[in-house]
């Protein structure tokens, strides 16, 4: 097994691992009790999955065709940058839209803060 094939194998491995991560986060999406926990699975672990896969693809192209794709790198950066923001926005939207938390939730810290702010306005 020469170096190139080895690296290609590693690239494929990256992708496989990424897909496994994706599956895991998908399981999270379906198994977690409320939207807040699901968004963890949906945004964070799946981001990892994508990063791994894109990295794998990048390596693959780099090795096989000697092509260092700026676009792929850009994609990696982009996903890295945006996925958390997206997750953040959705959960916030969910919260302000009044989506119920799961029964097992222990604490709602934001509630107090918001209530306080409401009170200040009310005065």
């Amino acid at each position: 097994m020469n170096g190139n094939v080895m690296i290609e194998f590693i690239a494929a491995l990256f992708m496989l691992v990424g897909s496994i991560m994706a599956l895991i986060s998908a399981i999270g999406i379906i198994r977690f009790p409320d939207v807040y926990t699901r968004s963890h699975a949906g945004t964070k672990s799946s981001t990892l999955a994508v990063l791994l896969t894109l990295l794998g693809a990048f390596i693959h192209f780099a090795v096989e065709q000697g092509f260092y794709s700026v676009r792929l790198l850009l994609g990696i950066v982009f996903v890295f940058l945006t996925a958390p923001v997206a997750g953040h926005l959705i959960t916030r939207a969910a919260y302000s839209a009044g989506v119920k938390m799961a029964d097992s939730t222990v604490e709602d810290e934001l509630k107090d803060v918001l209530d306080n702010r409401q009170d200040e306005k009310g005065e």
């Binding site: 939207v35 945004t43 997750g87 959960t91 969910a94």
Partner: peptide
């Protein structure tokens, strides 16, 4: 809920 769906679509 709707946010659930959006999360899933994002995913």
């Amino acid at each position: 809920s709707l946010p659930d769906r959006v999360v899933a679509l994002d995913m």
